[in-house]
């Protein structure tokens, strides 16, 4: 079980992003983190991955401190050295239990080309491949479908579903449908607080739950702008 226990976090000189946020996630499931822009989804994932340290509270996995040996993290923006090839990049993410280079061909990337010639979507695929090659029990994927073409999105979705059970997967997406199609649980955060956690059998209610409050807010704003 992954437990987020009363974490608080704020960026320097800014309002607190999380205050006493707590969350529990089962191992071997796919968890979606949903929320509006700026709700703190990426920051929460960065804290879970150990990239950011919370000001207060702690994260535990099976009661232990999380370690980089257990977690792989796909960031929204990945920085690559422009002058290396995709294959050279992937070779860095080798795992002694995962030496099958056939995985490199998953998305049909031109791996012997320099990364400087890759499109945004190709870079995303390369970063996803690097995550897969690390073969760690927890995969944290921030917006993994952004920039992917239709075929690759489908491929990634199937891949993540196949991995369910053997890995715990945490993903964010701005598209609710992506999360409801893929996840076992969805955790919705707003203003630094967990608003609700919902299991797959209750997903029918999720649109109502999220959009009910937003609809009223949007109408008020639009009426003010266009009387």
């Amino acid at each position: 079980m992954i437990s987020v226990n009363n974490i608080s976090f704020s960026w320097q000189n800014n309002q607190p992003l999380f205050q006493d946020l707590s969350l529990v996630m089962d191992i071997g499931k796919i968890h979606g983190i949903a929320g509006l822009n700026g709700a703190g989804k990426t920051s929460l994932l960065s804290i879970l991955a150990g990239y950011l340290k919370p000001d207060k509270g702690h994260i535990s996995i099976h009661g232990n401190k999380p370690s980089g040996k257990q977690i792989t993290f796909l960031e929204t923006e990945n920085f690559f050295y422009a002058h290396i090839t995709g294959r050279e990049y992937l070779r860095l993410f080798k795992n002694k239990h995962f030496s099958n280079d056939a995985w490199n061909e998953l998305f049909g990337l031109p791996l012997d080309e320099l990364i400087e010639h890759y499109s945004t979507g190709m870079k995303k695929k390369l970063a996803i491949l690097a995550c897969i090659r690390q073969d760690k029990p927890i995969m944290i994927l921030d917006e993994p479908f952004n920039g992917l073409d239709l075929e690759s999105s489908r491929m990634l979705r199937s891949l993540l579903l196949k991995m369910r059970g053997s890995k715990t997967i945490l993903i964010t997406s701005h598209i609710l449908e992506t999360l409801t199609n893929l996840c076992d649980h969805i955790h919705y955060i707003e203003k630094g607080q967990l608003v609700f956690s919902m299991a797959k059998q209750d997903f029918g209610e999720i649109e109502n739950k999220i959009f009910h409050t937003l609809e009223g807010k949007h109408q008020t704003l639009l009426n003010r702008l266009i009387p």
Partner: peptide
Amino acid sequence: KNESLPLLRS
């Protein structure tokens, strides 16, 4: 150039 964190942690 500074590499990304995944590269550093690899």
